[in-house]
């Protein structure tokens, strides 16, 4: 099979980007989308042209490094699948495929299809952790966690931080990412002590990074390669309202991050 690619090329963050069209050579339909880009890049390199820059790492759908908005949908046509596990057989022979970087102001394009997702790191630094002493492992079952809660926390923890939720959101909101990162900790006993300060700090950092606002359209969970539910957004909204009230009326100084 062969496809025609309409790819976003941009030299660096400052330069104006634009689309360029490439016709692929004969492809194996069982190639992954990234392998197809590798083939094009080999051709470009042989011709002495600059290869298309794109993010990739594990290529087995777990690291969250690959991105790409393929025909307007982050991570391509399938549900619950990352770009690296999208295969060329999902496209028609001769199809024109539009490939764009994730589009969001807090995710500036570094080059071609690579965006800087450091805004997510800032969010994690603000509240995506628990403060515990390291050392020997605690006794088993010292902190009881029911199976339901453990499963729910695990559902949230499945987030690989790829940023597809931001890319798909009509408003470039980071709510699904932030809600997942918050819930995975808030649900468990280890995360509970810092719940309020975490939630307040996460929202503050998310807002300052310039992400948009959730309008409850759930495009995020529809593109999430880990199918994280918008339920976590509702949970996060609830946690934020509760934290806001408690920080307003509590005399304890523990809740300071949101002030």
């Amino acid at each position: 099979m062969k496809v025609r690619l309409k790819v976003w090329r941009q030299k660096n963050e400052q330069s104006e980007g634009g689309f360029q069209t490439y016709d692929t050579p004969e492809l194996n339909p069982n190639m992954s989308f990234l392998e197809m880009l590798d083939v094009i890049n080999e051709e470009l390199t042989e011709k002495g042209e600059e290869p298309i820059a794109f993010d990739h790492d594990c290529r087995e759908g777990i690291c969250g490094t690959c991105s790409l908005t393929i025909n307007g949908k982050p991570h391509g046509p399938h549900r619950g699948v990352a770009t690296c596990q999208t295969y060329m057989r999902s496209f028609h022979d001769g199809e024109t495929i539009t490939v764009e970087p994730f589009r969001a102001n807090p995710f500036p394009v570094i080059r071609d299809l690579i965006v800087n997702r450091a805004a997510f790191d800032k969010i994690i630094q603000a509240g995506g952790f628990i403060s515990v002493r390291t050392g020997s492992a605690p006794d088993a079952n010292n902190l009881p966690v029911s199976k339901e809660v453990a499963e729910l926390a695990m559902d949230a923890a499945a987030c690989i931080g790829c940023g597809a939720c931001v890319a798909a959101c009509k408003n470039a909101s980071a709510m699904l990412f932030v809600a997942a990162k918050s819930s995975q900790l808030n649900l468990l006993p280890q995360g509970k002590p810092e719940k309020d300060s975490r939630v307040l700090a996460l929202v503050k950092t998310m807002d300052e990074a310039g992400f948009g606002n959730c309008t409850n359209q759930y495009e995020c969970s529809a593109v999430c390669p880990k199918l994280i539910s918008e339920d976590f957004i509702a949970r996060f909204n609830r946690d934020y309202i509760a934290a806001g009230f408690r920080s307003k009326f509590s005399s304890a100084s523990s809740v300071s991050a949101g002030s």
Partner: peptide, 29 residues
């Protein structure tokens, strides 16, 4: 306020416009 912030959050939209499940109502609020 929310609309202004949302516009700022994505100064350049996608060339290939695609909607998965956002309702018509939600997109025309």
């Amino acid at each position: 306020q929310l609309t202004i912030e949302n516009r700022k959050a994505r100064p350049r939209g996608y060339d290939y416009d695609h909607t998965i499940q956002a309702s018509y109502a939600s997109r025309t609020m």
